[in-house]
Simulated assay, not measured.
Amino acid sequence: MDATLYATTQTVTDWATSEGNPLNPDEITPRLLHAARVLVRTYLAGRPTPTDPTRRQAVLDAQAAQIVYWTTTGIDPHENVSKAGTVVASAALLGGSMTFADTTTKTTARANAAGNLCPEALLILAEAGLSTRTIRVIG
């Protein structure tokens, strides 16, 4: 993918604002931009770089949607989000027990959200004809 298909802080804030989800530009770190680019590029692996303006815009919009998703859900794809047992729900002093609020299901979901394209990004790419799913005919 060429460098013109890399979302910038400005393209992400513009997209987020147009979608009614304005972001503080300080929330859009170079690490998030890079992670979103890598996810979209990986999803589109094996496909030629889009030349159609609508499809090129969809690639940028998908990156923006991914960053908005991460920032609004509080997920940092560079942190160890799969580590369970970090949020204490309750503790008992004399019994020595501790219960954690982040269950295995929750941490698995957060890990998946950190390493996979969000549903909106997938839909944006699919609407532009950039889905990597193939149609299978059975029978």
Rank of each mutant, 00 (worst) to 15 (best):
I138P: 03
E19N: 13
L44S: 06
R110Y: 04
R37D: 13
A62E: 10
R133E: 09
V38E: 14
A128Q: 08
R41W: 13
T11F: 10
T132G: 15
D102E: 08
E19T: 15
T49N: 02
A84F: 02
A64R: 01
T11W: 10
H34Q: 15
A16P: 06
K106I: 15
D14H: 04
A92P: 00
A89W: 00
I67W: 05
G85E: 03
T72K: 14
Y43T: 10
A45Y: 08
A3M: 10
P50M: 00
A16T: 06
H78R: 06
L60H: 03
T108V: 11
E120Q: 14
N112V: 13
V38L: 13
V88G: 00
A121Q: 01
A45T: 11
G46S: 01
P30Y: 07
S131T: 15
A91R: 00
N24P: 05
L117N: 01
M1V: 10
V59G: 02
G95P: 02
L44P: 05
T51D: 14
Q57T: 13
S82D: 15
L39Y: 07
K106V: 14
T103S: 12
D14E: 14
T54N: 13
A113G: 11
T4H: 15
L130P: 00
L33K: 09
L94F: 13
V87M: 06
N112D: 14
A111L: 11
Y6T: 12
A128Y: 07
T4K: 13
T11R: 15
S82W: 10
T108Q: 13
S97L: 05
D61Q: 12
G115E: 12
G95Q: 06
I138L: 13
P22T: 09
T107A: 08
A7H: 11
G95M: 04
I67Y: 09
T11P: 08
P77W: 02
Q10G: 09
A91S: 04
P119L: 15
P119N: 13
T4V: 09
A128F: 09
V81G: 01
A65V: 09
S90R: 04
Q66P: 03
A36P: 02
E27H: 06
L5E: 10
R136G: 05
R47V: 04
T9W: 06
T108L: 11
E127T: 09
S18Q: 08
A89N: 04
G46P: 03
T108S: 14
G46Y: 00
A91T: 00
D102T: 08
Y6D: 07
S82C: 06
Q66I: 05
R37V: 02
R41N: 12
G129F: 11
L123F: 08
T49S: 01
T99M: 01
S82V: 14
N24F: 07
F100T: 03
A109Q: 15
R55D: 02
L130N: 03
A89S: 09
L44N: 05
V12W: 10
L122S: 06
L125A: 06
V59R: 03
T103L: 05
K83G: 02
T107N: 06
G74Y: 07
Y43F: 08
T104Y: 08
P77C: 02
G20I: 02
N80S: 11
V12D: 14
N116R: 11
D14Q: 12
W70C: 00
A35Q: 10
T104A: 15
T72L: 14
T104R: 07
P50Y: 01
